[in-house]
Design a protein around this nucleic acid. Structure first.
Length: 578
RNA sequence: GCGCCAGUAGCUCAGCCGGAUAGAGCAACGGACUUCUAAUCCGUAGGUCGUAGGUUCAAGUCCUACCUGGCGCGCCA
């Protein structure tokens, strides 16, 4: 079985070598990397590197400012093969490199052999101009090269309201789709509606029985396996009000459609409230009705990928790495979900997508191997499909975990959570953690309008900047054109750090998209806010010094733009005042 | 029993292709509002990165085994 991590590794290997797309990266990092590469080639030509191959030059932004603007580990990687100790080799690289074509202020050799580059500061603030020019496009790239990727998410059965766990998958899927689009993929968002099969019959039967109960004036629980929820009673009432008491058992098929449509409307409304829309709602039923399921099963049989045993039809998933073969058609003649899913994924492939992302609850992980098998049986490499398994959500109230069972009493629906905590906090909290670790959702904290709530910390950054601009307008200070600004006046350590953080956005987006890790947006924007707030507190923007005021306003405009861009990707509002 | 995910400060978690002294928030303690918004800021304290080996110049990160927790192993969906 090919796990999602393997698939991700394969994808990343491709992208690492793709050219960095962002202008800032070209200007700064890549220029520096090229210079280093040149220096290494010169050293190799001079015979100083022995027979060592020159590896890809890696540049990292160090955690500590004393370690420079960029740090490079190349001397340590080459030392052994070059037959020199790392610090000596680093010294030779520095001598050969010089000022890297006017880019480098100075270079230090540190620790075991790191090269720490301090760049000339005017280059650092070029990003402010770039952001002003690109506006809301800043951070986007063409790393995805227009590849078509489908993100299928939520896909909850239309048998009841969405619960909190669905909400997490919904937000993660939505933001991942935003990220992929920003990274240059052509993204399609899809919701797969399981509107066929046994559960649908149960739904129609549940509605019918509730309807009968209304007529007979009873309200006892329905038989085992049917849907007990109050919403069914509401639909039954509606049905009776519109159609009277004459509906018979032969109309259950019709009631199924009626109820499923109602529930889907409810699901759609709940998602809409969270700011989530789909390009397509894909009906499972159309696959059955259109004969596609039948057709794909015949195809598998024809290629001996499926066989009859004990009156059932089995899929040879074991030969693609699954633990055992799986049933496609039960001996009673009913098709399993897998049968429909094979046809569905064949349909996705036929629609021409290059990559498929499925977002499921973690309790479905036993299903991954057989879907990977299906992809292979359909003639595609298993890496084409990435399955993201979203871990469980625990609601926390008053410091205690609230049971997530559907028992009455404890709140479980997504709608209630959004009503209580609001769209922004709900989205932020769902994005806060890696999708593959469990999430404790502190409801009290999410709805608290206080400094403890991280979503406000980030939004407040935006509001504060807007407030400064309002003040500037009030005092008749015009917003500067960044090309006329003297950025050499920005010498505070926070200003340098902010410029570097702003310049990182394209990388953050590209890597978060590549690795399918939307939570990195949260980490990024929170980090930016925790550089910004102390900076704001310490340095006044509007002062008598017109040149400095202009430089800081230009920087503020860039921070605001980046904040807007990131919050937009997260689907969270950027308020002008709070 | 087999498989997947997780295990990092008292609690909840970051840590991007393996890099320098492992970072935040909360909770605790002590400070800062006459200012462009205090929904903010400054400071103190807090660590055997589950355990044991291994690979490497370098391991929270990679490999192996084990321990603990969650989930999954059906002709269910």
């Amino acid at each position: 079985m090919t796990c999602p991590r393997v698939a991700r590794a394969l994808v990343s290997r491709v992208l690492v070598y793709s050219s960095l797309s962002d202008e800032i990266e070209r200007q700064m990092k890549e220029k520096l990397a090229k210079s280093i590469e040149k220096a290494l080639e010169a050293l190799k030509a001079a015979g100083e590197l022995g027979d060592a191959d020159i590896p890809e030059v890696q540049l990292a932004i160090p955690k500590q400012a004393e370690h420079g603007d960029y740090a490079c580990n190349i001397a340590m990687m080459l030392a052994k093969k070059a037959g020199k100790n790392p610090r000596e080799l680093a010294g030779r690289i520095v001598e050969t490199l010089g000022d890297g074509g006017g880019l480098i202020e100075r270079t230090e050799i540190a620790g075991p052999g790191f090269l720490n580059f301090f760049l000339k500061s005017e280059g650092l603030f070029d990003v402010v101009k770039t952001i002003a020019t690109q506006g809301e496009a800043f951070g986007r790239s063409d790393a995805g090269a227009g590849k078509r990727v489908m993100v299928e998410f939520v896909s909850a059965n239309p048998t009841g309201p969405l619960h909190v766990g669905h909400g997490r998958g919904a937000v993660i899927g939505d933001v991942l789709a935003n990220l992929l689009a920003a990274a240059g993929y052509a993204v399609h968002r899809e919701y797969y509606i399981n509107d066929a099969g046994v559960q649908m019959n149960n739904l129609g039967r549940s509605t019918y029985l509730r309807y009968r109960q209304l007529i007979e004036g009873t309200s006892e629980p329905l038989p085992e396996g049917l849907y007990q929820g109050d919403y069914i009673v509401e639909y039954a009432k509606e049905l009776r009000a519109g159609r009277g008491d004459g509906i018979g058992e032969d109309a259950i098929g019709e009631l199924t459609v009626f109820t499923a449509t109602k529930i889907l409307d409810m699901i759609r409304a709940d998602l809409d409230r969270l700011g989530i829309r789909f390009d397509e709602w894909f009906s499972e039923k159309t696959l059955h009705d259109g004969g596609q399921v039948r057709e794909k099963l015949d195809g598998l049989r024809a290629r001996d990928l499926a066989y009859e045993k004990d009156g059932a039809l089995w899929f040879r998933t074991e030969q693609f790495g699954d633990d055992k073969d799986r049933v496609l058609v039960k001996s009673g003649g009913e098709k399993t979900y897998l049968a429909a899913d094979v046809a569905y994924h064949a349909n996705k492939i036929d629609r021409g997508f290059d990559e498929l992302v499925d977002i499921w609850g973690a309790d479905h992980h036993g299903y991954v191997a057989r879907m990977k098998a299906a992809i292979q049986a359909l003639g595609k490499p298993p890496e084409m499909l990435t399955v993201m398994l979203i871990q469980m959500v625990n609601l926390v109230r008053g410091g205690e975990r609230v049971s997530m069972s559907t028992r009455a009493g404890s709140f479980v629906t997504l709608r209630e959570l959004v009503d209580e905590a609001g769209k922004d906090a709900t989205r932020y909290f769902f994005l806060m953690r890696r999708y593959d670790s469990q999430l404790d959702f502190d409801v009290d904290l999410a709805k608290e309008k206080s400094n403890q709530n991280p979503v406000f910390y980030v939004q407040y950054m935006h509001a504060r900047i807007c407030s400064v601009f309002a003040k500037a307008a009030e005092e008749g200070v015009s917003i500067p054109d960044p090309t006329d600004v003297d950025f050499s006046l920005l010498t505070a350590p926070e200003e340098v750090q902010i410029a570097q953080q702003l310049a990182e956005l394209p990388n953050v987006i590209e890597r978060a998209a590549r690795d399918r890790e939307p939570h990195r947006l949260v980490t990024y924007i929170y980090d930016l806010a925790s550089t910004f707030h102390p900076y704001y507190f310490q340095h006044r923007v509007i002062t008598d010094d017109a040149a400095l005021t202009a430089a800081r306003l230009a920087l503020y405009a860039a921070i605001r733009q980046v904040t807007q861009n990131v919050l937009a990707l997260m689907g969270i509002d950027a308020p002008e005042s709070m």
